[in-house]
Design a binder for these strands. Structure first.
Lengths: 188, 188
DNA sequence: TCAAAATCTAAACAAATGTTAACGAACGGA
DNA sequence: TCCGTTCGTTAACATTTGTTTAGATTTTGA
């Protein structure tokens, strides 16, 4: 619980009492590689904070092919936020790549935060803004860089990613086939 | 000013007095087709609300090729939010496609809002969340749909777009060449 | 420890997409 | 109104990327 408190305090000013209220419904959970944290088709009612490990978010297309849309590392929050906010069935799943320890924040905790924290909306705003900047940057990258260039840059966004996830998942994240990524690496 | 007030009231509860404070530094501006509202390389210190018209946001890659990353329609806010939030030089420009009337919200107005509005952070959170959902959806679309499918779906996001912007800009938005879009249309 | 599964690379071929050039239609400013 | 510009389409060819298959290596789990 130390880690998540530190992450929260980096965003907002929060009293010890408030912190206890926010975290009272939260609990820790450990999942093994390939285990699912959050499943497509279900409404996401939880946000996860990663204490240790790494996860990937996946989405399945009409042909049944699975795509990796995101990796999440230590000290980051992860969820299908669209599903969480809209209360619609999640389009993506979240699964552990390594053995991963998370703190589960149920919807009740988040709603308690918006209602009772002095800076609850501010925290929501900062989280949303953080992801906004991330998505915005990612979108611009997609217009401006080739897949090879995006491969070269990926460890800026996900440090040490090459040592932690198999290459075919990186290819999936880049939107290219694993065979093609292997080809591109030869040229770099 | 009616329109922007209506848009704001759809997000938050705000008194008439607060509204006047928020809008006191805002002003109206009209630009002709192809005129620039916001230029790449400059720090964005303004958010625009579109009363009438349509704009596109563009980014230029290393080879000097211009890409259309976004269209913005009536009753929407538009800016390079990353530049606005981070106070870093904007990567993209915003230009009018049709003759466009906007309300300019300078940074001073936004900051006044965060500081003085009862629900200032809430408004910030809702705007950021709205864009989060938009980007998230857009990203998932890119993994799951082919360019042809994204072309077929584009008018769900940008109603009537086909009658308002030249096709080569739509191709640019989709990330394909205008020639290729022309080819794809034949097959649909 | 050992067999099965996962992973990466490579080659050959197929499909998708980009580039260039040409042409006619529509559009816009003088 | 007229002429230059922008726009959309088409064809031919080039490049990029996907698919399939195979083989070698590593990892995993019983």
């Amino acid at each position: 619980m130390q880690q998540i408190q530190h992450a929260i305090r980096q965003m907002i000013t929060i009293s010890q009492q408030e912190m206890e209220g926010l975290l009272k419904d939260c609990y820790s959970k450990t999942v093994k590689p390939k285990e699912i944290l959050s499943k497509q088709g279900h409404i996401s009612n939880e946000i996860f904070f990663i204490c240790k490990g790494i996860t990937r978010s996946t989405i399945v297309d009409q042909s049944g092919v699975e795509h990796t849309i995101h990796f999440s590392l230590e000290n980051q929050f992860v969820a299908d936020y669209s599903s969480f906010m809209l209360k619609t069935p999640a389009l993506n799943s979240i699964e552990a790549i390594e053995e991963t320890e998370v703190i589960v924040m149920p919807r009740s905790a988040i709603e308690w935060g918006y209602a009772h924290l002095q800076q609850g909306d501010r925290m929501g705003r900062l989280i949303a803004e953080y992801y906004f900047i991330y998505f915005d940057n990612r979108l611009k990258n997609q217009y401006v860089f080739t897949p090879a260039q995006r491969y070269e840059n990926i460890s800026r966004v996900f440090p040490n990613i090459h040592n932690r996830v198999p290459q075919h998942m990186i290819a999936s994240y880049l939107g290219i086939s694993p065979v093609h990524l292997s080809r591109l690496k030869k040229l770099i």
